[in-house]
């Protein structure tokens, strides 16, 4: 609520300062009037605009809401992106494989076109399905974890990725299952390190030189 007033106030003051330079003389509280010489509009509008941070953008959030989109809201976009990327990559690789296979078999014309389409559809859909299922699992685990723990942080990412790897390889033996979990954990760890590199560099700086902030 305050950000709306601040924004509104900044706009009014911006106009006011151009019109009447005397309004800025009083630095602590500037009187907002509809016309110069009249009574001020509202006591809530009387404060120094220099307290408003002008450099950073202000966003309006509902009370008590997190200032970031939750995992559930991001999940569908992530799954869709994984599917589309998988379809694109798989389709391209299928196209190359199809061209190779048809030239080897010496197929031409109609037959070759149909075979090419078959190859593209088959490879594209299989890679898209694989990536999509992985991201459905990841999103599901992520949503469950963040809902269970009440927070959304790197531990959720790590846990969800590990569980996804294990579940995806769960039908092909214990050893494969463990290695799948390990791969998931490694990817998630790399992502988390990259995502938090600023925090990490700050920590290492402070360890070397505690006086520096």
């Amino acid at each position: 609520m305050t950000s709306i007033i601040n924004d509104f106030h900044a706009k009014i003051l911006g106009d006011k300062e151009k019109a009447t330079p005397s309004a800025t003389e009083n630095t602590l509280s500037s009187q907002v009037t509809s016309q110069p010489g009249l009574a001020p509009l509202s006591p809530y509008l009387n404060f120094d605009p220099s307290y408003l941070p002008a450099s950073q953008p202000e966003f309006i959030f509902p009370e008590g809401a997190v200032k970031q989109r939750g995992r559930l809201e991001l999940a569908f976009s992530q799954i869709g992106a994984a599917c589309i990327i998988g379809a694109g990559l798989g389709g391209t690789s299928g196209f190359y494989k199809g061209i190779k296979a048809t030239t080897l078999a010496g197929q031409t014309g109609n037959l070759r076109r149909t075979q090419l389409i078959n190859h593209v559809m088959k490879h594209g859909s299989s890679l898209a399905n694989t990536l999509g299922v992985i991201s459905v699992m990841y999103s599901g685990f992520g949503v469950i974890l963040s809902w269970a723990r009440g927070t959304d942080d790197s531990i959720n990412t790590l846990g969800a990725a590990t569980a996804t790897g294990m579940l995806f390889k769960s039908t092909s033996g214990l050893r494969k299952c463990a290695s799948g979990g390990g791969i998931g954990f490694a990817i998630a760890a790399a992502y988390c390190l990259w995502n938090n590199r600023e925090t990490l560099s700050q920590i290492s700086h402070q360890r070397i030189n505690p006086a520096r902030k």
Binding site: F76, S77, I79, G80, A81, C83, I84, S135
Partner: peptide
Amino acid sequence: WRIVDDCGGAFT
């Protein structure tokens, strides 16, 4: 972006 979102929703 609705395309990506709908694709993901349908996949799920």
